[in-house]
Amino acid sequence: MLSRTADCLFWLGRYTERAANVARGLSVTLRLASLSSELGAELDAWRSLLVASGCAPGFDAKHAETTQENVVDFLVRDPDNLSGIIPCFSAARHNARTVRTALTVDMWGALNDSWNQIRTAEFQGERLPGFLEWVRERVLLFNGAAQDTMLRGEPWLFVQLGTALERADNTARLLDVKHGLLGRASQDTVEYGQWQAILQSVSALRAYHWVYRDRLEAAKIAELLILRPELPRSLVACFGRVVEVLERIAAGQGGRRGECHRLAGELHARLAYGRIDDILEGGLHAFLTDMIGRTARLGSEIEAFYIRA
């Protein structure tokens, strides 16, 4: 496959996933902000979302004040923020159009319809929860169309690669939003509500109860989202998928491998054989920061090997 096509498909996977993840991040923050007990604490929630999503510098360059409305506008609409929901849809559609023949009609339809609707959608105030839900549904529709209709060749694998890598990055960032909360045990009801919100944001609250059949505990939440392979959005599951996809691409090319294969394998092994106590002992924030950095490096290595070689 042409490197340019791979590039478009890889980023198509990343942009669609990112749009949904920003929506997830906004949803959990909305919930956390409404749960705050202290006056002014809800603004901290919006602030930590900006920091965790890596958007704080861009935001501060444009806004003097951190308010819900400003943050939402920046993360949803602002064309200067390339990680915003609407800019992500726009970039995804552009990529899809460039490699139109590599996509199925259903994938294109899901994306094109979303793009046509999102341009005029309202998302502030009361509309926000409904809008965020809609964004998640549209991305689920796109992923479902890909899953159901796409030929299992290299094009499919590159979309999957983009999705899995972006998802890993997002889970690490979401955890990082409230790493302080998960680093200690607590019986505070407010904190309990906050834990629930974090799990809900990765569609994992029910999953927690199925896996642990117990009350929420900080260490177990961290373990579920980082180390449990059963949860499709856990770090270990995402990297497992990255390794699997990279191996399938290599198999299709007569075993040709590069640094990205080694790095992905190393990352996955670390998670597959890691223990949550060790991670928490070393500090959750430090661990997550390291994971986010390695995920970014893996992305660059994949591009260096397959796309910009």
Binding site: L2, S3, R4, A6, F158, I249, Q253, I307, A309
Partner: peptide, 19 residues
Amino acid sequence: VEGADLFVENEVVFMRTTA
């Protein structure tokens, strides 16, 4: 392909592919 997908080395034309 677009122009940027092709390159010439020693008077031979190649396209950049994932392989």
